[in-house]
Design a protein around this nucleic acid. Structure first.
Lengths: 241, 241
DNA sequence: TCACTGCGTTACGCCTCATAACAAACACGA
DNA sequence: TCGTGTTTGTTATGAGGCGTAACGCAGTGA
């Protein structure tokens, strides 16, 4: 054991704090500039440092982005889970609504982070097998999956509107069920993916400005309608209008 | 009238050809590199030219991107319209399926162009009022809207699953109906937006790699299921499984 | 033949990413 | 208290992209 290794405690804390400050600054700049391409130079300037200093903490920009992605999907997952728990266990319609609204609200509050994890994959990225990118998908889905599992356990799950399931999807559902305790029927697995896609599409269109012509109030109403339509189609209890 | 103005014909054709070649090269490079950030230098190299030469045709990279965006939404709109016309007028279920599949297929074939128009807005862009970005939304929607209009004219339109329409959405629908000959009821206007969002979400998740774990065959089946579920929810005739 | 216009080139300045070499601050043991 | 090695920050430097400026060259029409 070297002296350095034993020396650690204070320095490690300082280092962790700096790393955190860098990430926060990067997020702030992304937010302010409304873009995902943050300049190392700008981050350094904002922190009263020189650009090369940042390389002590992140090997290059991609590593920093990777860290931001990891953080972002954790944050999204946590927020959605938190909001889901905020609604009573018995009221599944409310739980679904809470999940959907959490997804939307988080995306609207942190559009850059949302795009970071669910937008276009970065050029040199996504190399690590089962990297954070696919993890993001899994976590987002896990939230939904447990919702369907709960509903089924409570006997509140109707069959989805589209009940036919192809062999390929069935196989896929089996694979997915094998790696999670919250098992669901193939038909509801399919419905779950439909639900996620529909929810995601609304949020994507909205945060990317394609619903800007719709006006705030109408958009909110439209979203609630979408949430209800999804619940209908998926066989979940439908939230009130 | 100057000499140059009269001289035009041949030179103008050459110029147009070069502009076209630049755009095609840019698209090809984007496609090859899987990214939206094309380097002027690379385009020039691929065309056996020097970078500054491109500035004779595009003031800067943003102008080029702007042109690409305009082209892309035209291409998407045309392809979707073409596929819609490919299905018989009477068979509205097939028409809807054709539109949805065209949207998906085009996005899969040209993911970069798709992200260009429907992905994250570019930093310095979207300035021109009613610029191509919002135009893209309008055109995509126009395709759907005429579909609903046709269905209604044929008496094949059921009420959507979610029939309640807020005053705000109703107002929005009225506004939209005023600027298009293909009028639809407020409830179906709402359903149409839900349909678009759902379709869009699936496509976005897919082309951004979040469905990579699903396997080709299952993804196709899943998509068909989604298309059917959307038709169900929107009150449109439902395609066969 | 001769101006004129448009196109493409080279030369340049500025900025960013990233590395290298160096200096200061620090922790710890003797 | 001092010396050693580590960590962290700096300045200096190189590679490469964007965009401008100034120049050469070809085609056009009088």
């Amino acid at each position: 054991m070297t002296a350095a290794q034993r020396a650690a405690p204070r320095r490690e804390r300082a280092r962790a704090a700096t790393i955190e400050e860098i990430k926060q600054t990067a997020l702030r700049l992304m937010h302010e500039q409304g873009t995902l391409s943050v300049r190392f130079t700008d981050i350094a300037r904002a922190m009263d440092m020189t650009p090369p200093a940042l390389y002590r903490y992140f090997a290059d920009r991609d590593v920093l982005l990777c860290a931001l992605i990891t953080d972002a999907y954790d944050a999204l997952g946590e927020y959605v889970a938190e909001c889901r728990e905020g609604a009573p266990v018995a009221d599944l319609a409310e739980r679904w609504k809470a999940v959907a609204q959490a997804y939307r609200d988080w995306a609207r509050r942190e559009p850059e982070q949302f795009m970071l994890i669910l937008g276009m994959p970065l050029p040199g990225y996504a190399a690590p097998t089962d990297g954070p990118t696919t993890e993001a998908a899994k976590r987002a889905m896990a939230q939904l999956q447990s919702l369907f599992h709960e509903a089924n356990a409570q006997g509140a799950l109707r069959p989805p509107i589209v009940a036919e399931v192809s062999a390929a999807v069935e196989e896929c559902a089996a694979m997915k069920n094998a790696e999670s305790p919250a098992t669901v029927s193939p038909a509801h697995f399919q419905a779950m993916l439909h639900a996620w896609a529909s929810l995601h599409g609304f949020v994507m269109l909205e945060i990317n400005g394609h619903f800007d012509w719709i006006g705030e109030a109408a958009r909110d109403a439209l979203f609630l309608g979408q949430v209800r339509a999804i619940a209908h189609a998926a066989g979940m209890p439908v939230p009130d209008a």
